[in-house]
Design a protein around this nucleic acid. Structure first.
Lengths: 233, 233
DNA sequence: GCGCGGCATTGATCTGGATCAAGGAGTTCA
DNA sequence: TGAACTCCTTGATCCAGATCAATGCCGCGC
């Protein structure tokens, strides 16, 4: 990845087809808003229309505000991902930086007007929306039917697939989110998440280093603890 | 609505643009599979690719199977709606008829190949996927952060908007799903749902008639009980 | 390096909703 | 129209995870 290129270039390379006409490309460029975000800073779209967000660099959480001091982390998103922030209705949503971050945002109606004729972009948008939907449904299953231990196992396996580094069977993770973020994502409390992680450590399934480092020592065991369907291999 | 027309006609009228070429339209027709479903019958896509489903008539639930006897109702869908059933991964999904039903299904990859050049259809598909995503996120918030009482209130208000009949301030509902379906949707037990409904009845917020009839007498009160953000009117 | 502040862990207690266990009321079908 | 089945409601008890309360430890700033 060319780390020093302009944010829009990164977006274009990832999302826009190379055959795209210069005028349309320019339209997207005009529409793009760049947001450098410090750690813990958040983007609030309270008054605005649906937004399309591209994570140029860093890691983010999409948070829904149910009421004072009751936030639900709806999703985590990492560099290179595209996602949609709904306009506020029963809840208001905001995007918060887990680490220092660079985001590109587009007002959705204008984006769609530009993209409508471009089959490739529409396809990309549909794909990323379907990916979000799939993840959200899996979260629904976890929150509706799983125990604390299962939820934590599901979380670790999901993060391993997305940001893990495999090395001889083990997977090393550098979690960008705090225990609070994890608990607000899993519908648990900080204490319960901590206890479950301690239990996994005691059982020799994971190792932790500092606050954010986790090594998954036994993924098959975690898989069993996650309460997934038995793979009908 | 012309109740006796062929299922595919209903789909075409709702989803396909009137300007669509006869050959493409014919392609969709070839791809469509019609499924008349009796009450409680379900369509299982265990071995197949992602599916696009159109509800011609009736009411359905999308169910995820987490493990034996632990099902989560991911969504309800009513006549005229389009939704996507993911291909099985950690969970397997099925669509189940709440009442006698008629469904039209399409294998997603083939559908997309046909739709790719048709901006209007892609737009519709994106819109219905975003609607599913929005509802799924709201469910996530409910399951992650809300009490039993709040979840039931959210459920009733949601159903009121979708299948309620308003008459002088009250909203009459004829729920097509059982208490079990509701509990599996809200991540609760049958008993808890029943108790919460009884409480609402005692408090004069709703009235029930038979097993499936519910009248919402005081929607503002329900709104308060749902634990939504205060509307910053 | 060292001390400070916030995050994480660990322990003790409490509680909302699950589970277990009967009854009661709607539907259906003879 | 009534018998039987299924679904729903209501009550009693239990428990996973929340809440309350210290303590410990990492990481930053000086």
């Amino acid at each position: 990845m060319t780390t020093l290129s302009h944010p829009f270039e990164q977006f274009a390379e990832r999302v826009l087809p190379s055959t795209l006409g210069e005028d349309v490309r320019c339209g997207f460029h005009m529409l793009a808003r760049c947001h450098p975000l410090a750690r813990e800073a958040s983007l609030d779209f309270a008054e605005r229309s649906e937004q399309i967000v591209f994570v140029v660099r860093g890691a983010t959480k999409l948070v829904a505000h149910a009421s004072e001091s009751r936030d639900q982390v709806v999703a985590f998103h990492f560099a290179g991902e595209v996602f949609t922030v709904p306009e506020p209705d029963n809840y208001s949503y905001s995007v918060c930086a887990l680490r220092e971050c660079e985001l590109l945002t587009f007002a959705s109606p204008e984006f769609l007007r530009l993209a409508e004729g471009e089959a490739e972009i529409m396809r990309q948008l549909l794909d990323s929306t379907k990916l979000s939907l799939r993840r959200c449904r899996e979260k629904t299953i976890a929150l509706g039917r799983k125990t604390a231990g299962e939820r934590v196992a599901v979380f670790l396996l999901g993060m391993a697939r997305r940001i893990g580094v495999e090395q001889d069977g083990r997977v090393a993770l550098e979690l960008p989110m705090s225990r609070r973020d994890i608990s607000e994502s899993l519908g648990l409390t900080i204490e319960t998440v901590s206890r479950q992680l301690s239990k996994l450590k005691d059982d020799g399934v994971i190792e932790t280093t500092g606050r954010s480092g986790i090594v998954l020592l036994d993924c098959p065991d975690l898989q069993r603890r996650a309460g997934f369907l038995k793979r009908t291999a």
